Amino acid sequence: MPDKDAGTPQKGKYTGTTDIPLLEDGVKQVQASGRLLVGHGRLIDPAKLAHVFISPRQRAKQTFELAFSENDQKELQDAGKVTTTPKLGEWGYGLYEGMVTKEIRALRKEHGLDKESEWDIWRDGCEEGEMPDQVTERLDSLIEEIHGFQKDAMHGEKNADVLLVAHGHSLRAFVKRWLKYPMEFPLSMMLEPGGVGVLSYQHHNLDEPAVLVGIGFPTES
């Protein structure tokens, strides 16, 4: 579930380390998603969660608190199922923090970069910020943690859903690494504020990660 920085005061700007809250529109979108999708018997069922990983930015924490009831938050936290981790932090934009794409590309040209092609964060990274291999390393480490929760639950032996609450670039980067694609792989993705994406495995096999492009919602028993 992304907080998506479109819901922040820095709309259109690269805000990685800047610790800003959601705007009112972002709050409303997350609340709407929570009402529809989060709760017992719903797509994101707290009872089926093995763990929740949250980015350290306040807007990610705010997203979690808006989407879940206070009681569900307390139960998850009391069970030790909530972790705030820098592994899910937004891409470190370095010199580009607070800038828009057009400004970044102009700055890079001033610095003598991108003579053959325009800046692409997935390939080129950020000056004085994170490079693709650095983001890859931290997300791969998180994926290993997630596999630890799910490796013994491939056939429903136990509840093993894992929820990530983070940001636009970090979540899209996570999808690439989940599928074992390099960061520069041209996979076009879109995320809405408060949106929910689902990743899974084919054939109940940890070595066959997949995107669930069609979601079947829970049915009443």
Rank of each mutant, 00 (worst) to 15 (best):
G197I: 03
P186Y: 04
M99R: 00
G94P: 10
V165E: 05
V165K: 14
G94R: 04
D207P: 00
G216H: 06
L22F: 03
P186F: 08
K11V: 15
Y93R: 00
L49E: 09
G112F: 08
P193G: 04
G168Y: 05
S55L: 07
C126Y: 04
H167R: 07
K48H: 14
K158T: 12
R172K: 15
L22G: 06
R59N: 06
F64W: 15
E128M: 06
E75W: 01
K102S: 12
M99N: 01
E65H: 14
Q62D: 14
E97H: 05
R105A: 03
G80S: 02
S170W: 06
A166V: 11
R138H: 09
P46I: 14
E118Q: 03
S188V: 09
Q62G: 06
T84S: 07
D25M: 09
I104A: 02
R57K: 09
A173F: 07
A60D: 06
A32M: 03
W178C: 08
P193M: 12
N71V: 15
H51A: 15
Q29P: 00
T8P: 15
A32N: 14
E70P: 00
G195F: 04
E118H: 02
Q10M: 15
L142W: 08
D140K: 07
Q29D: 08
F174I: 01
T15P: 00
L43A: 11
T8A: 09
I143F: 02
P86Q: 02
E118R: 00
K28T: 01
A60I: 02
G148L: 11
D72C: 07
R123F: 01
K74E: 14
A50E: 14
D133K: 15
K48D: 05
F185L: 01
E220Q: 13
P56S: 10
K151Y: 03
P2K: 08
M131T: 07
G89P: 00
M154E: 11
A153V: 10
G41F: 13
K87C: 00
L66S: 09
A166H: 09
D5A: 14
K48S: 14
G12N: 13
F217N: 06
V175K: 03
S69C: 08
G197M: 02
R35W: 00
G216C: 08
G168H: 03
H167V: 13
C126R: 01
G197V: 07
H111E: 10
G197W: 03
A166F: 08
A160M: 07
V135G: 13
K61V: 13
E97L: 05
L142N: 05
P46S: 06
L107V: 03
E130A: 05
K102G: 01
D25E: 15
L142M: 11
P56M: 09
D45T: 03
L164W: 11
E137C: 02
